[in-house]
């Protein structure tokens, strides 16, 4: 019922329906999960697929991601792209509540007829977020958005999670990371297709230094994409400096993605990986439930030193 209604709304480009559908997909209730699954199913069967670009944007809090997205997103929206931003805000750990201030930073994009900005509180870190975000992306694509940004704070595992659901990954850096240049996680540099050293309006020299450093790192490390060398750029989300260059870079990257159906391959692999990952979680849950008794028995025998670890494992696999 609900799924049907929301699907209809989304396909007729009703923003309210999209907003409610995102809520549904993000909900933690089992009955909502069911409806969400159905919604995705309907959309999958009815939406006509079109070329979209999924763009991950990462960087430490305060680096200027939201401001960057306002500038870049608006430029795209003005060029008749349909742009949506899914921003994940960190929930306050103690209270479970959150303050979602991103709308204030992306006001123009939020209000643009071609734009849509949806801040979401990041719930209990990452369990399930990946799946949900992937589904939210599919809702936005069904609605007709062709530029989907996923903004994430660069903490913990979140950037690998986001990397695994986007076509292109963009990392924002601050110029004055100062003495702890080494503090930039190598891991994140390996993932980046673009590095944008932000806030050049404040200190262009520091920006250039930082960019040089990044380039020197790329001389040394191996990056995962055959045929695409990460681009390092400097600029300012506030003054728009460097933004045109970045947009051109993205266009080149899109070309690159189209060669040899690279994008399809990546997306297919991502889907499979996601499936396996989710399967692990679900299967593990299932396993725990059905084998609860045997596991308990085996583990007490183990503690009492009656059997070996190998035997305990065997008992669980064999037992009922």
């Amino acid at each position: 019922m609900l799924a049907q209604e929301l699907a209809l709304g989304i396909l007729s480009q009703n923003r309210r329906s999209l907003a409610r559908a995102i809520t549904l997909v993000e909900s933690s209730l089992p009955k909502h999960r069911q409806a969400a699954t159905e919604l995705i199913r309907i959309l999958k069967s009815q939406a006509s697929p079109r070329e979209t670009l999924r763009i991950g944007v990462s960087g430490v809090p305060g680096v200027g991601k939201s401001t960057f997205l306002e500038t870049v997103g608006l430029a795209m929206a003005n060029a008749n792209h349909k742009v949506c931003v899914l921003a994940v805000d960190p929930s306050s750990q103690i209270s479970g509540g959150s303050i979602l201030g991103d709308k204030t930073r992306m006001q123009k994009l939020s209000l643009h007829p071609n734009g849509f900005v949806r801040p979401s509180p990041a719930r209990d870190t990452l369990g399930g977020t990946a799946l949900r975000s992937r589904e939210v992306i599919s809702l936005c694509e069904a609605f007709g958005f062709d530029r989907i940004f996923v903004e994430t704070v660069g903490v913990g595992q979140s950037e690998t999670t986001v990397y695994s659901m986007v076509d292109v990954f963009l990392v924002l850096l601050l110029p004055n990371a100062g003495d702890d240049l080494q503090g930039i996680k190598k891991g994140i540099m390996e993932l980046a297709d673009f590095i944008f050293v932000n806030k050049s309006d404040l200190d262009p020299h520091a920006c250039n230094r930082m960019a040089k450093y990044c380039e020197s790192v790329y001389e040394l490390i191996h990056t995962p994409r055959e045929g695409w060398k990460p681009r390092v750029m400097t600029g300012s989300s506030l003054s728009s400096e460097g933004v045109d260059e970045l947009l051109r870079g993205l266009m080149q990257f899109e070309q690159f993605l189209l060669q040899n159906s690279y994008k399809e391959t990546v997306r297919r692999t991502q889907k499979q990986d996601a499936f396996l990952q989710e399967l692990k979680i679900v299967a593990w849950d299932q396993f725990l439930k059905t084998k609860n008794n045997v596991i308990n028995k085996a583990s007490s025998s183990l503690i009492e030193d009656k059997i070996s670890v190998a035997d305990a494992l065997w008992q669980v696999i064999e037992g009922e």
């Binding site: 929930s91 306050s92 209270s95 479970g96 509540g97 959150s98 303050i99 979602l100 201030g101 709308k103 204030t104 006001q107 801040p119 509180p121």
Partner: peptide, 16 residues
């Protein structure tokens, strides 16, 4: 109100 509500567990969107 925004900070108080979020301290109490609300999700608060603060508009410009």
């Amino acid at each position: 109100v925004a900070t108080g509500f979020s301290d109490l567990g609300f999700d608060v969107d603060i508009g410009p």
